[in-house]
Design a protein around this nucleic acid. Structure first.
Lengths: 225, 225
DNA sequence: TAATAATATGATGATTTGGTAAAGGGGGCG
DNA sequence: CGCCCCCTTTACCAAATCATCATATTATTA
C-alpha cells in the first residue's frame, strides 16, 4: 500500500482527489497548507506528493523547493489550465509532473501510476520511530518536530531513540547506557546526565518543546511522555 | 546531445515541433507513421519519443504498445485537447506523459526536460542522478552545478553518487567504500576522508557551494542534504 | 522549614574523531 | 623507461564529543 500526501487549501478539493485515488489502492493523507505538508513529510513515509500550486501563504513551488531541501519524493503539481507560466516554473523547481484542473479520475490516476512506476523508491528496511509530532530520522541521525530538525550526536541519538521507542517507560541511567553503548567499557552513570543536559539545551535552543516530553523521574531516571 | 524521435503524419507539425526543440539542444529525427518510428527506434539511439495520437494506419497507442514490446524509452503523446479518453488509454498503455494541442514552446520544452530529467534509465542504460541544481554526468564522470562543471576521479564520483542518490541519509565510511569499490580488497576507512577532502577542495575551487550540501555527521560519517 | 537526597548546571580535562598535509605505491601512457 | 595522476596510507593537529567532578538548584521528607 502506497501513501500519497495531498496538499491543498480547499477541503473540497482534498476530498475529491482522495475519492479518486483511494479506490485504486492508495492511502491518502490530506493536509491544508505547505507547512503542514513539510511536517507530515518529515514524520511519515510518503511515496508521492500531490501539490496544489495556488495556495495562500506558501504557494506550490515554494513548498516544492522546501521539500527538495530534504527529500526527493516524487511531486505532482496541480494547477489551473491557463497557468502556462506556472507549469514551466514548477517543473524547473523540482516537480516531476503536472496535472491541470479540471481533471478527471482517469487522468489523475494514470499520472500517479506512471510516476510511481518510474520512481520505484527503495524504502525497504527504513525504521520509522515517532511519537506525536516528533520523529526520529534513523538515517540522518536527526530529530524532527513539526518543521524543525536537529542534528544529534551519536550518544544523544541513542538516548533519544531508547526513550521514544518506549514512551512512558522510565529508564534508569544504567539501562540507557546499556541500551546504547558501553557493552564492554565502564562509564559513570552521571554521564547520562550530561547528555540529557546537552540534549535539552540543544533542542530548547532549536525551538523544540522538549521540556514537555523529556522528563526526569526523581530517584529513578528519565522517561519520554 | 540527446535525440528525440518525432512521429506524426503531418510534415508541418514535425517541422514545428523540431523548431521548438532544436534551439534547446535536442537533436530531432522526424518520421511519418508508426512503422517507420519503430524501425528508427530499433536502429538508432533515441532518448525520447514524441508521438502524435491521431495518425492513419497505426494510431498513437498502437505504436505505443508496439514500442513497449521491446523498449522502455520515454514516450510523450501529442493529443487534441478534447481527447480525454485517448489520454487515459495512452498513459495506461505505457506512455509517460502527454501534451495537448495546441501547445506553446515553453510547455513542450518543459515537459521534455522534466521527463528526461526524471527518467532513471536512458536508452544506453545510464543513470541520471541529480539533486536540485546538482547533477551527475555518469558518462563523463563529472558533477554539474548550474553552469559549472567539475571533472571527478573515479572514487570521487562513486562517493558523490552514493551520497546524492540518497539525500539526507548518513553513510558510514564503510558503507561508502562498499557501495562503490573494494568488494573484495580491504581499504582503510580513512581513505574516504582523503577523497572527501579532495572533493571539497576541488569543488570549492571550482565555485561549487559544496559546504552547504556535503556534510560531516560527527561520529557516524557523511551525508548530502 | 530545615535537613537531606537527587538532579541540574557549569567547568574542565580526556578522549575520540575529523581535517589536513605529505609521501609512497602502482598503473597507464607517451 | 620515466612521468604523471590517482589511490592509499600515515602522521599530526584541530575540533567536537564524551566523561568526570564540583557546585548550585530543586524536590522530598521529617
Amino acid at each position: 500500500m502506497q501513501t500519497i500526501l495531498l496538499v491543498d487549501d480547499e477541503q473540497r478539493m482534498l476530498d475529491l482527489v482522495a475519492l479518486f485515488l483511494e479506490p485504486h489502492g492508495y492511502q491518502c493523507i490530506k493536509v491544508t497548507g505547505g507547512k503542514k505538508a513539510i511536517e507530515t513529510l518529515k514524520k511519515s513515509k510518503i511515496d508521492l506528493v500531490l501539490l496544489d500550486v495556488m495556495m495562500p501563504e506558501m504557494d506550490g513551488w515554494e513548498v516544492c523547493e522546501a521539500i527538495r531541501e530534504f527529500s526527493n519524493v516524487p511531486i505532482i503539481l496541480l494547477t489551473a489550465r491557463s497557468d502556462k507560466f506556472d507549469l514551466v516554473k514548477g517543473l524547473n523547481t523540482g516537480a516531476d509532473d503536472y496535472v491541470t484542473k479540471p481533471f478527471d479520475e482517469g487522468e489523475l490516476v494514470a499520472r500517479v501510476n506512471a510516476l510511481l512506476r518510474r520512481v520505484t523508491q527503495d524504502t525497504s528496511g527504513k525504521e520509522q520511530i515517532q511519537y506525536q509530532d516528533f520523529s526520529l530520522n534513523t538515517e540522518a541521525y536527526a530529530l524532527n518536530y513539526k518543521d524543525l530538525t536537529a542534528q544529534l550526536t551519536l550518544k544523544e541519538f541513542l538516548i533519544i531513540k531508547a526513550l521514544i521507542s518506549r514512551p512512558a517507560k522510565t529508564f534508569t541511567r544504567e539501562e540507557l547506557i546499556e541500551s546504547g553503548w558501553a557493552f564492554d567499557t565502564y562509564t559513570d552513570v552521571r554521564t547520562v546526565d550530561s547528555h540529557i543536559r546537552n540534549l535539552r539545551e540543544k533542542l530548547r535552543n532549536a525551538g523544540f518543546p522538549i521540556d514537555e516530553f523529556l522528563k526526569t523521574v526523581w530517584g529513578i531516571g528519565y522517561k519520554w511522555s
